[in-house]
Design a protein around this nucleic acid. Structure first.
Length: 437
DNA sequence: TTTTGAGTTGTTCGA
DNA sequence: GTCGAACAACTCAAA
């Protein structure tokens, strides 16, 4: 066994600043071999997310003077072989809490261990690691507000500076890649740690201070637009939280980061809830999945429902890889409660197109909309797309931006009668049995 | 153990 | 036009 270096395996932590695993790797005093494994499983991800990933990798590679080593293949095979190849006893990672990442890491850890090596996990992509916020009796929270209350009591480490690192990578270590270019068909915002820091400071010194008023208005750039950066760990939520001041606007922003932690926690404790109802009683609620349902889904996903706010959101998603959160809720509610389709269809479509697609936040957001997740009042919360548009896009500015033909040329009539479908949804919910959890 | 207050993001109805 | 109640009852979390 060599004692010559350690491996830093990057995954969803594509940054150098405030990086506990990198700090731990550097503190061994040994040269650090940086590696990113291009997992064949990535090919399932949408082009927008892969394009973002590629950009973030280029930026990370640049910030370590081209040392980042790419390797193609299954990490369970690649990483143990790589550690042996470079003669490293230890592989450092940021802990992953998703269903896929956790089982992958268990396999990698076991295989490294069999060779006398160690997988060392430090930190997480979250302000508070999944599994660490619990009730006094040790059980997890399943309602957001009590979770938030406890989450707020957690003390956060101060952001860590970039450590002194002796990179030992390319070209001394042979590398594959880089990952194949993908073209999402539209331009992404600037990518990388520096760009994310600038995005944050621009938001922090501007819209953040009116976040509670502006964040729900899709025509306004009132949100941070950091979701993709957070998704890949180009910025860590701890750094954002450390910049906040007391006050309602900043508190509201912090609670959005708490939602991210909450959903990661729920998914961590219930890995099956990625694609199955968190509340299994909802399995008995009838959903439509026949040929007509597939036709309706096609209209929804291409932005041709005839409900302008829904269609604007769906077109924003296809045209830019991102959708304003208020509109995500409206279009999700429409799929589930007006079209009576399985939430999984919508979740999959979002994951295919969102640049920020995150399994926990996306799918539990969908479950919230579907009433199968952590919503405390799912039965009567049916969004009215017309009322929502009047309330949050009163001048129609957002709608016109994404549906330029509206009022000018062909635009479809509403594909359903909302009032009737609302009653149908309420009827179906009444078929769900109470209690038995 | 029992009790109590509350539950992200809503809508509709009727006074 | 505005306002409060009803929606349907349950479950959660904490005292």
């Amino acid at each position: 066994m060599g004692m010559g270096c350690v491996v830093m395996w990057f995954r969803r932590d594509l940054r150098l600043f405030d990086h506990p695993a990198l700090v731990a790797a550097a503190s061994t005093g040994l040269p650090v071999v940086p590696v990113f494994v291009i997992d064949p499983a990535f090919s399932a991800a949408g082009t927008a997310r892969r394009a973002y990933m590629n950009g973030a990798l280029r930026s990370l590679d640049h910030s370590m003077d081209g040392a980042l080593v790419y390797r193609f293949g299954d990490p369970a095979v690649v990483i143990p072989r790589f550690a042996a190849e470079v003669g490293a006893d230890s592989v450092f990672v940021t802990c992953d809490f998703g269903p896929y990442g956790r089982s992958r890491d268990q396999t990698v850890a076991a295989r490294l261990h069999a060779d006398g090596r160690t997988l060392i996990g430090r930190g997480s992509p979250y302000a508070v690691a999944p599994g660490s916020v619990a009730k006094d009796d040790g059980n997890p929270y399943v309602v957001f507000t009590p979770f938030l209350k406890r989450w707020r009591t957690q003390t956060l480490l101060a952001p860590l500076p970039v450590p002194e690192v002796e990179w030992l990578g390319a070209p001394a270590v042979e590398r594959d890649g880089p990952p194949k270019d993908v073209d999402p068909g539209f331009a992404l915002a600037e990518i990388g740690e520096q760009a994310a820091a600038e995005r944050w400071s621009g938001f922090r010194d501007g819209p953040l201070n009116r976040y509670d008023e502006l964040r729900d208005i899709p025509a306004i750039a009132g949100t941070s637009r950091l979701s993709a950066d957070l998704r890949w760990g180009v910025v860590h939520p701890r750094q954002l939280l450390s910049d906040l001041a007391p006050g309602r606007a900043h508190d509201t922003f912090a609670s959005e980061l708490a939602w991210r932690d909450f959903y990661a926690d729920v998914l961590h404790r219930r890995p099956d809830s990625a694609w199955a109802n968190l509340d299994r009683r909802m399995d008995s609620m009838p959903v439509d999945d026949d040929e007509l349902a597939r036709e309706r889904f096609a209209k929804w996903s291409s932005g041709l429902t005839g409900f302008p706010i829904v269609d604007a959101g769906m077109r924003q998603l296809l045209a830019s890889g991102w959708m304003h959160n208020r509109v995500r809720m409206i279009s999700a509610s429409f799929l589930v409660k007006d079209l009576h389709l399985p939430w999984q269809w919508g979740a999959r479509h979002f994951m295919n197109h969102l640049v920020d697609g995150d399994l926990a936040s996306n799918n539990h957001g969908w479950q919230w909309a579907a009433g199968s997740g952590t919503d405390a009042a799912p039965y009567f919360r049916v969004f009215n797309p017309t009322a929502q548009a009047e309330r949050f896009d009163p001048d129609g500015e957002y709608v016109r931006r994404w549906i330029p033909e509206i009022g000018i040329s062909d635009y479809p009539a509403p594909m359903v009668d909302h009032a009737a479908e609302r009653l149908e949804a309420l009827h179906r919910y009444r078929l769900v049995p109470a209690s038995t959890r």
